[in-house]
Design a protein around this nucleic acid. Structure first.
Ligand code: MN
Ligand code: MN
Ligand code: MN
Ligand code: MN
Lengths: 223, 223
DNA sequence: CTTTATTTTTAGCCTTGTCTAAAATATTTT
DNA sequence: AAAATATTTTAGACAAGGCTAAAAATAAAG
């Protein structure tokens, strides 16, 4: 397959993150994101357009083409798999993984990435809770997930409780959990799949898997 | 610390491998090794000299300085740790690891490499049997000899292959030879210095001197 | 509907790392 | 020792990816 320079990849990834569902990205926005002068951005836009990765008309803004989006998802897949590896296997803390992953994401070997994915057990979310695209660029769009499957030490917001039996609500009340509560999973005990949970700076506590699997959370929307 | 470009690192590593214990490396040798024209090599030699990594005088050949050697060992450490990771954790076969490691070796993060080393259990040899320098650049040496010089009918363990060209690997694969294989030399043919080799109870086979001299073995460690 | 301000593009320059062709130096042969 | 050959360096060019300053296009004010 065709491959792209580190610089091209960084532009593609940044454009992907800036363009939402619709609407155009502007030269200045991208310039700010990449900390590169607007004139340099314009140069690269022309190159990416020539390579058919970008829909771009002078002065009119731009968005990735279908092909460009595909390339972006490949880069994001690599980035997030490496972040997961660093966090889960090398015990990096979740705020240290990003910078190293910025470098590792540019190592291109399909085999490397697919074997890494397998080695890691096909994780669906990176240490920040962002979804990891699969081999085909599919991303888990689950708005909410059970706390039994979220990564460790990442604060998330309770948005759903899948069982409203009185005994269940009793436990939730006792532990100060309600919709909107922000909590993180500190440890998973493989023996009985129980979880150690912490809310803010409070004393951590244990939830059995029976309870935990009914508690669903979503990413905290940051501004 | 100071860091170097991918290109600089590739030059430094190549020079390290070309310069033995003593004697000068020539521009043409390095040019051949890197598949780069001699004129380009001369340019880089000047840059490395300016950065005090190289002892170099026009027309007189060159060797790495003490600092240059230190940098080289760091690159080799990264390369071989990644090769070990690919082989041991991702189940790459030992002839697939090199090309990917060529890319990974240029990712610079001391923490990444030291954590990786720890995760892998501080391995001392890569999948080709080459020693992995430790944090301080120390390399373990095991006593090894080429199979062209070992006594007949003494089983020994393959611990190093001195040539990783694809054609070489093809022959090794065909004959089921890899690092760790135990074999013995049954006969030496004086006419062309070819050897008759036997692995365990398998059918013996012949290796030309061309091939055999790149295969190194050590005593079998028993415990 | 002009004038002004902002955004974007063009034009020209710089650095890194590569190349080819030609000149300089070193080595080998006669 | 001179000539022929091989090696190495210099000179000049180019592509990628960045920059500044100026021009062109668009958007916002008056
Ligand atoms: Mn990240
Ligand atoms: Mn990046
Ligand atoms: Mn290697
Ligand atoms: Mn390399």
């Amino acid at each position: 397959m065709t491959s792209y320079s580190t610089s091209e990849e960084n532009y593609i990834k940044a454009i992907y993150h800036l363009q939402g569902e619709e609407g155009m990205v502007t030269t200045n926005e991208l310039s700010a994101e990449l900390k590169t002068r607007p004139a340099s951005v314009t140069d690269m836009l022309k190159k990416l357009k020539a390579k058919k990765l970008l829909n771009y008309e002078k002065y009119q803004g731009f968005r990735l083409s279908t092909e460009g989006r595909k390339v972006a998802l490949g880069i994001i897949r690599r980035h997030r798999l490496w972040e997961f590896f660093l966090s889960e296997k090398l015990r990096f803390s979740w705020d240290e993984v990003h910078d190293v992953a910025e470098q590792l994401e540019h190592v291109t070997s399909k085999k490397l990435i697919d074997k890494l994915d397998e080695f890691l057990g096909f994780p669906r979310f990176d240490p920040h809770g962002d979804p990891i695209p699969d081999q085909h660029g599919k991303i888990a769009t689950h708005e909410r997930v059970s706390i039994t499957v979220i990564p460790l030490n990442h604060s998330m917001e309770v948005c759903h409780v899948g069982n409203q039996a009185p005994d269940m609500l009793d436990i939730l009340k006792h532990n100060n959990i309600s919709i909107g509560t922000r909590l993180e999973v500190r440890k998973k005990f493989a023996f009985d799949n129980s979880l150690e949970i912490r809310i803010g700076r409070q004393q951590p506590f244990i939830l059995s898997n029976e309870v935990a699997r009914h508690i669903w959370v979503k990413k905290i929307e940051r501004s």
